[in-house]
Amino acid sequence: MDGALFTSMLFATVVAGTPLVIVALGLLVSERAGVLNLGAEGMMAMGAVAAFAATHASGSPWLGVLAGMGAGLAVALVFAFLALTLQANQVAAGLAVAIFGVGLSAFVGKPFESVALPAVPPIRIPFIADIPLIGEALYNQQALVYFSWALFWAVLWFLARSRAGLVLRAVGEAPAAAHAIGHPVIRIRYLAVLFGGAMAGIGGAFLSVFYTPMWAEGLVAGRGWIALALVVFATWRPLRVLVGAYLFGGVMITQLFIQGSGLQLDFPAQFLSSLPYWATIVVLVIISRNPNTIRLNSPASLGKPYRPDA
C-alpha cells in the first residue's frame, strides 16, 4: 500500500468514525447516570436538520452546530420529561422519541431538500499536519473532529477523576443511596440526558453540515442505533467507545477501498458491507469479555426509573 492511499484511508476512517464518537460519548454519560436513551437516532435527525437550516440561513456552520445542539437538547428534554418526571418506561419513551424525531425532521426538513451547502474547509494545524503519512489525515480535519477528541478527554477525566463524575456514577449505580446522602438524583439525570441529547445533536450537525453537506430524509441512516450499540459493546468505557467507533469507520472504509481497487476477490459485496458491524462487535466483545468487568462497569440502575420518596 502506498503512503498516499494509507493517508486517504486514515482520513476517511476518522471522518466516518467522528459522528459515532460524539454521539456514543454523550450516550455513555447518560447511561452512566442510569438512563437508557434509545432516542438518539431521533435526536441526531433533529440536530442534523436544525443545523442544516441554521447554516443555510446564516451562512455560518458554527451557528449550525449550535442549532443542532439546541435541537438535540430540545428532543432530549422531551425524553427526560417523559422518562424522569413522568417516570415512563425508558425503553418505550426512548423508542417513541426516536420515531418522533426522525418523522419530525423529515417534516420540517421538506423545504431544505433541494438545497446544497458549500463544503466547510478543514482546519489545518500548523507543523504537526506536516508529519508524513498521518499528519494530513489527522491534523487537517474538520473542527468537529478535534472537538470529538477534546470531548473524549473531557468525558474520561470527568468520569474517572472529577467529583461531579463520581456523583453521576453513584446516581447510575445506586440512586437511592445517592438520594439518601443528599444528591438530587432526578436533576443529575436530567443534566446527563440533556448532555447526551446535545452531543447527539452535534453528531447530527456533523452529518448534515460537514460530512455530506445536504439534508434529505433518512440522512442519519441508523447511526444513532450504531452509537447506542457501541456503548453497550464497549462496556461503558470511553476508550473502548473511541476504539469501536474508529474500528467501525475503518472497516467500512477498508471494504470500500477493497471494492474500488478492482481486486478480483471472491467475497460477495453484501458480506463486505456487513463487515463493519460484525467486526466491531467481535473485537469489542473480545476486549470486554471479562464478565466481572462487565458487571463492574454496567450501571446497576440502567433503565430503571427512580422515584425519590416524598
Binding site: A16, Y211, A216, L219, A221, L256
Partner: peptide, 8 residues
C-alpha cells in the same frame, strides 16, 4: 439510499 455511504 444512504448519502453518507454513497459519499464515502
Amino acid at each position: 439510499y444512504d448519502p453518507g455511504k454513497e459519499r464515502e
